[in-house]
């Protein structure tokens, strides 16, 4: 009996992890101040609107734990003034699927670090890492560990970063 209860969340978490990692954003953008992207006009091209219409037809509602919710085109709430460059008026809404409660997969909020010689005890030479350098300060994050946590909230050389997988 007890086993059954454990199995369901385990499957859900497993399924979510697999799905979530379907895409991993590899970094990018200019290391310098100059912004390479011209003021990003329509980040979500009109094509995404088409994309949104299809899913209902195609996506099976397999898991009973799934609940879909349509993102409502809620008017931008008062008081919040997003960055000018960041606002995209032509925004399209996406179908959002809920698989797990918030934080069922725990992000890392207080990452601890090792020197390279110490890390050799945990990392094999051919282990994949995601690396960053800011102001000469370098940090490496194990990709397989990122797979299990998805997000690391970190600060490197005073810069607040979210390492995502």
């Amino acid at each position: 009996m007890k086993r059954k209860f454990l199995l369901i969340p385990a499957l859900l978490i497993g399924g979510f992890l697999l799905a979530a990692c379907a895409t991993a954003v590899t970094p990018t953008s200019s290391p310098t101040e100059a912004n390479p992207d011209p003021p990003a006009p329509s980040e979500a091209p009109t094509s995404t609107a088409d994309a949104q219409e299809e899913p209902t037809a195609e996506s099976p509602t397999g898991s009973s734990a799934e609940s879909t919710q349509q993102v409502s085109p809620s008017p931008t709430e008062a008081g919040v003034e997003p960055t000018a460059a960041a606002v995209d008026e032509s925004e399209t809404d996406y179908e959002i699927i809920t698989l797990l409660p918030f934080d069922a997969i725990p992000a890392i909020d207080d990452p601890q670090f090792l020197r390279a010689d110490e890390a050799d005890e945990q990392y094999s030479p051919d282990d994949l890492v995601m690396g960053v350098v800011f102001d000469g300060e370098a940090r490496a994050y194990s990709v397989s560990h990122l797979s299990r946590h998805e997000i690391v909230n970190d600060t490197v050389a005073g810069r607040k970063i979210a390492v995502t997988w």
Partner: peptide, 24 residues
Amino acid sequence: FLPSFQTTWADWKARYPDTLALDI
């Protein structure tokens, strides 16, 4: 977006010997 790199631990360490690594 911020620039990051993906490589092996050995390659990263060779490029940045003073690097720190996430304690896993």
